[in-house]
């Protein structure tokens, strides 16, 4: 399954780069991320509780950032397996400055296997879009709430205090969805 799209974040590429490659922020913004532990440089063991509606599954796996070209691009590889099967996705994220903002374009491939693939084919693509949307909306929210500090220790595993606040994803999701809704219904703010 091909995945591509773009998203604009506030701030120059340097700032956005630091945000995107910060494990603590990743932990907060990867949908359903319950745990993100560093195992080696740019490689993290992750527990993701992902799902749409009542369809939920816990996946354990890893998140890897490779081919890092500071402030311009990197590749993110997410692999997880769990009861419903496995997910594997990798994509290249490109950062480009656009008047004080950064345009992130991403493209990659995702593979889903196991039960979800064999019974949920009709929803997989839309789910992937939804999850990516959630990720970026969470980033938006974080940026608005607290500009990411550059002092964040890149090696530190996220502690309890850095885990998402209760209902965080719910709010994030709602906000994202409201934005989508506005697009669909052409409601202007």
């Amino acid at each position: 399954m091909r995945i591509e799209g773009n998203h604009t974040l506030k701030g120059k590429p340097e700032k956005v780069w630091n945000t995107l490659t910060d494990p603590e922020i990743l932990a907060k913004c990867l949908p359903g991320c319950e745990k993100l532990e560093k195992t080696e440089e740019d490689t993290y063991k992750a527990t993701l509780n992902m799902g749409i509606g009542s369809i939920k599954g816990t996946y354990t796996g890893q998140v890897k950032l490779v081919d890092k070209q500071p402030y311009s691009s990197f590749k993110m590889i997410v692999e997880g397996k769990g009861g419903p099967g496995f997910v594997k996705g990798e994509g290249i994220l490109n950062l480009q400055e656009q008047n004080d903002h950064t345009l992130i374009t991403y493209q990659g491939d995702a593979q889903v296997g196991g039960t979800i693939a064999s019974v949920g084919q009709r929803m997989i693509q839309a789910s992937a879009k939804m999850i990516i949307g959630q990720f970026f909306t969470a980033l938006d929210m974080l940026q608005e709430q607290q500009p990411p500090s550059s002092e964040t220790s890149s090696g530190g595993a996220p502690s309890g205090s850095s885990s998402p606040p209760p209902n965080f994803f719910f709010k994030v999701t709602l906000r994202y969805l409201w934005n989508e809704l506005k697009k669909i219904l052409r409601i202007k703010n």
């Binding site: 039960t115 693939a117 064999s118 084919q121 009709r122």
Partner: peptide
Amino acid sequence: YDENGQLLTGSFMD
């Protein structure tokens, strides 16, 4: 089957 060999018609839903 998709190109990865996943069976997409795995139930009577499909």
